[in-house]
C-alpha cells in the first residue's frame, strides 16, 4: 500500500499575547489509499487543529506551521501550495465533514445551492447536470425526497439528515481523502450508528481514504482499520485496530480503553483517567502524560519519549517500552 497522505513532523503554533505557542508538537502519521484511519484522544488534544492544518484552513493571522513540517498528498507538498492551488485541492481531492451539522451548513442558503456550488467551484458543467448529480448524491446517502430537499433550508431538516447532506456534499466530487471530525458526536445514539455505517459503506464502495476523528474508542472499534492515539498534541500510540484493542501499550491508551463503557462496566466512566489534558501554554516537561500516568517514573518527568516501533505496525512513545527495546536489542 502506498501512502496517500503523509504528515511529517507537523508542528502547529498559535499566537497568544504576541507569543507563538506550540499546540501540536511535531507529529507524523500516514494514511494509505482506501484506508480508514482513526485519530482518537480526549477533547483538546489537537485533533481538529491537525485536520484543519491538512485542509490548509488554519486562521492565517493567528497560527503558523513549523518550519520542518510537511504535509504530502500523493507526493505533492501541500504546505508549499499557493492559496489558489490549495483551493483546488479542497473539496476536490480532500474534503471534510464537521462535528455539528446544525451549524456547519449555511442557514440562509438552500441545500441545493450548497450542493451545487461544490461542483461549480471545481468543474465547468451545466446547471442541469449540477442538479442531477446533486440529487443523485443525496439519494446515495439515503435521503428520501431528494428532489424536494434541494429547495429546502437546513433548519427544515433533522440533525441526522443534515449530517447526511454534509456527507453528500463532501463526497460529491469523489475525493481521495475524506476527513470526518467527530461526525457523530452531536447526534443521537441511534442516528450515530446509521451515519457511521453510511461512512463505512461509502468508503468501501468508492475506495475513499477516511480519517475519522473521535474521542470515542467505540466508534474506532466499529469502523477503522488503523488507529492513531493523540495526547496533548503528540502521537502516543499507533497500531492496527485489532492490535490496539488486544494489546494496548501506552498507559494513556489503556486508560482510554478502561474508561470505555461496556456491558459490564457501564457505570459512567468509573475508570476515567484522573486529571485533564494540559493547555498548550502549560505543557509539562518530559512526557506530557506523566502527571496523569500511574506508571510514571522519575525519568518521565524530564525527558520526552520518542515514538518507537514495536513491530506489527505498532508504535508507541513511552519510556516503559523504550527500555524493553534496549533490553532485548
Amino acid at each position: 500500500m502506498t501512502a496517500l497522505l503523509e504528515v511529517k513532523d507537523l508542528e502547529i503554533k498559535f499566537r497568544k499575547d504576541k507569543e507563538m505557542i506550540s499546540t501540536v508538537g511535531e507529529i507524523s502519521f500516514a494514511v494509505n489509499e482506501g484506508e480508514m484511519l482513526g485519530i482518537v484522544g480526549e477533547s483538546g488534544c489537537g485533533k481538529s487543529v491537525t485536520s484543519l492544518a491538512i485542509m490548509g484552513l488554519l486562521p492565517k493571522e493567528m497560527s503558523q506551521i513549523g518550519r520542518n513540517s510537511d504535509i504530502l498528498f500523493n507526493g505533492t507538498s501541500l504546505t508549499k501550495l499557493s492559496d489558489a492551488d490549495y483551493r483546488r485541492v479542497r473539496g476536490k481531492d480532500i474534503s471534510m465533514i464537521f462535528q455539528d451539522p446544525m451549524t456547519s451548513l449555511n442557514p440562509v442558503l438552500t441545500i441545493g445551492y450548497q450542493m451545487k456550488e461544490m461542483i461549480l467551484a471545481h468543474e465547468k458543467v451545466s446547471k442541469r447536470e449540477c442538479w442531477t448529480r446533486s440529487v443523485e448524491m443525496l439519494k446515495k446517502v439515503g435521503i428520501p425526497r431528494a428532489e424536494q430537499i434541494m429547495d429546502e433550508y437546513p433548519h427544515q431538516l433533522s440533525g441526522g439528515m443534515r449530517q447526511r447532506v454534509m456527507i453528500a456534499i463532501a463526497l460529491t466530487l469523489q475525493p481521495k481523502l475524506l476527513i470526518a471530525d467527530e461526525p457523530t458526536t452531536a447526534l443521537d445514539v441511534t442516528i450515530q450508528a446509521q451515519i457511521l455505517d453510511l461512512i463505512k459503506e461509502i468508503q468501501r464502495e468508492s475506495n475513499t481514504a477516511v480519517i475519522l476523528i473521535t474521542h470515542d474508542l467505540g466508534v474506532v472499534a466499529e469502523v477503522c482499520d488503523r488507529v492513531v492515539v493523540m495526547y496533548a498534541g503528540k502521537v502516543v500510540e499507533e497500531a492496527p485496530v485489532k492490535e490496539l484493542f488486544v494489546d494496548p501499550k501506552h498507559p494513556y491508551t489503556k486508560g482510554l480503553l478502561g474508561s470505555m463503557p461496556t456491558l459490564i462496566n457501564d457505570q459512567n466512566r468509573l475508570n476515567a483517567i484522573p486529571g485533564s489534558v494540559p493547555l498548550p501554554e502549560e505543557m509539562p516537561q518530559g512526557c506530557r502524560f506523566a502527571p496523569r500516568c500511574s506508571q510514571a517514573m522519575p525519568h518521565c518527568y524530564t525527558a520526552e519519549p520518542p515514538l518507537v516501533s514495536l513491530g506489527n505496525s505498532h508504535a508507541t512513545s513511552c519510556w516503559l517500552y523504550d527500555k524493553e527495546e534496549q533490553k532485548y536489542g
Binding site: 484543519l52 485542509m55 484552513l57 483551493r87 483546488r88 485541492v89 479542497r90 473539496g91 476536490k92 474534503s95 471534510m96 464537521f98 455539528d100 451549524t103 456547519s104 451548513l105 449555511n106 442557514p107 456550488e117 461544490m118 467551484a121 471545481h122 454534509m166 456534499i169
Partner: peptide
C-alpha cells in the same frame, strides 16, 4: 462554522 465549511469546499 458554516464559513469554515464553505472554505473547506474550495
Amino acid at each position: 462554522d458554516y464559513i469554515r465549511t464553505a472554505r473547506s469546499k474550495g
